[in-house]
Amino acid sequence: MKFLVCLKQVPDSTVRVKVGGDRRSIAAEGITWSISPYDEYAIELALERKDADASTVVSVVTVGPARSRDALRQALAMGCDDATLVTSEADLSALDVAKALAAVVNEAKPDVVLCGKQASDDDQGLVGPALAEALGWPHVGMLTKLVPGASGLELWREVEGGHEVWSAAPPVVALVHKSEKEPRYPSLPGIMKAKRKEIPEKDLASCGVTPGAPRPEVALMDLPPQRGQGKVWKLDGDAKGVAEQVAKALREEAKVV
């Protein structure tokens, strides 16, 4: 079976994000970039299939600026077989990204396309469904597990208070919520092997995409307001008395109970 995982390079979750001078984007200086966490889960799910059946091929693709090559290299080091970079220095709309990915999918002809359910930078969650739409493929969201089943694939998805098992015959697009195991570290031999792999590069034109799909624009980006100082009460009395005073303060002053 052939998997194609679509990933996005985003600011690492440990980065303290700052708002840029234009107040419509983040300040890019000094940022460490990583694979978006949900995309890492998607890679892990695909690689688990490869662990179980060595004939499985796991490819990765991203649409993004040249620095995104690092994220693809990271995926190769984790054990993916090949990678494709569609370069665009401009910030694209979800629809344009989906169209470019669709061109790569049509060329690579995978059985299963996995995407993280959303990227951790803008949290829009648009690219996966748009890609399924562009391809005309069925689409399943909130995936947590993927196993071969009688009629193709068993797709486990998380729902409120439990899970559902769906079945689908490939080809299918699935959006990953989580993997059972944490995404693996690259192995050291994997890093050396990844170093020797070519990552072919395409541009939007070769994917047949002219960017410009309609999109909303960010009007303003702001950090949450600074939290105010806490308040210290000096309370006297026994435990019951103190508890009563705290409950009263929480209800009447803080208005939280």
Partner: peptide, 15 residues
Amino acid sequence: PEEIRILQKTVRQFV
């Protein structure tokens, strides 16, 4: 170099 940056991140996460 790219592979050293991946090594750096991998070792850091492991540590």
